[in-house]
Amino acid sequence: MEQDYPKRSDSQPLLATWIKWTMDFWDSLIQMGPGPTGASPSGASPSGAALPEGAPSPPVLQAAIKMWEAFFSLLSEPQTVSALFQDIHAPSEIILKMAQTGWGAYFHLHRLWLETIRAPSREPKDLRLEGLDQEIFRSWMETYEKDFQRLLNVPQVGLTRLSQEGMNRLADKFYQFQSAMGEFVYTIHLPMKKSLKDMQDLLKTHALQGKVSGDFKDYYKIWIKYLEGDYMTLFQSADFTRAMNKALIAFGDFTLARQEMLADTLRGLPLPTNRDMDELYREVYLLKKQVRELTKMLIKTETSQ
């Protein structure tokens, strides 16, 4: 098979070349083989001898092959290929931008974390329970809201747009829930860190003064008192109340979004959803209330007669 292979300089000729090779391959295959019905498209047998009389020809197969040949010929036209490749870089650029954003955010958070560990002024004893270190969570939420959340809020199109939007809403609420819970768990953890550091300092002082007690229960009791006091200080702070409220709201929103998604997924099954049952329960509740009131009125009327 003699082919005229064009020189490869960029992606456009490469695709055209590939299409041409594909067409030539199928052409040659058809010419070589008898096909599923034993007859070649040209009506000749592979050995070149004429087919016996009465041998059936595959008109449907021939028509299909002709159609594909015409389609691929169109694709290999330079104008068609250049139109195809005009925006081929766009998706890759979008993907690259997303990846860069993600990596950028990750490295920013990583840097903050390293600073937290390395900085000598960030000893646990300096951690004020009244003013919590919110920076890392704030940075994550800012990054998320700026870069990722907008992608999730893009309106969807098509037949399944409602389900897609439900999925995106669930993902959005999940990330917010994770962030809020992370912040809440972090705040709960602070008194533990502070009390342990205070105990370290106390032990060091006692050791220097030669007052180390042989009974560890004494130190345990002291540590529990420190811990209790630190938790009380934390729980009375506005920061903790805000973090707890935020976590509860995020949990509630995530629960709602998950229920909606689940109801949407199970819609095909003969199962009632929470919403269906709530509506039913409300009707039953109102009916029962009405019956009770009417019963009381009836008893009162009968009693007074």
Partner: peptide, 28 residues
């Protein structure tokens, strides 16, 4: 507390959630 959002999300306030809240009053 935003009671409206909690009730709209959960219906009844789950006993486990109330338990966690009560334990948090003095976790030590």
């Amino acid at each position: 507390i935003d009671a409206d959002r909690l009730v709209d999300a959960f219906g009844n306030l789950p006993g486990d959630l109330l338990n966690i809240g009560l334990l948090l009053l003095n976790p030590a």
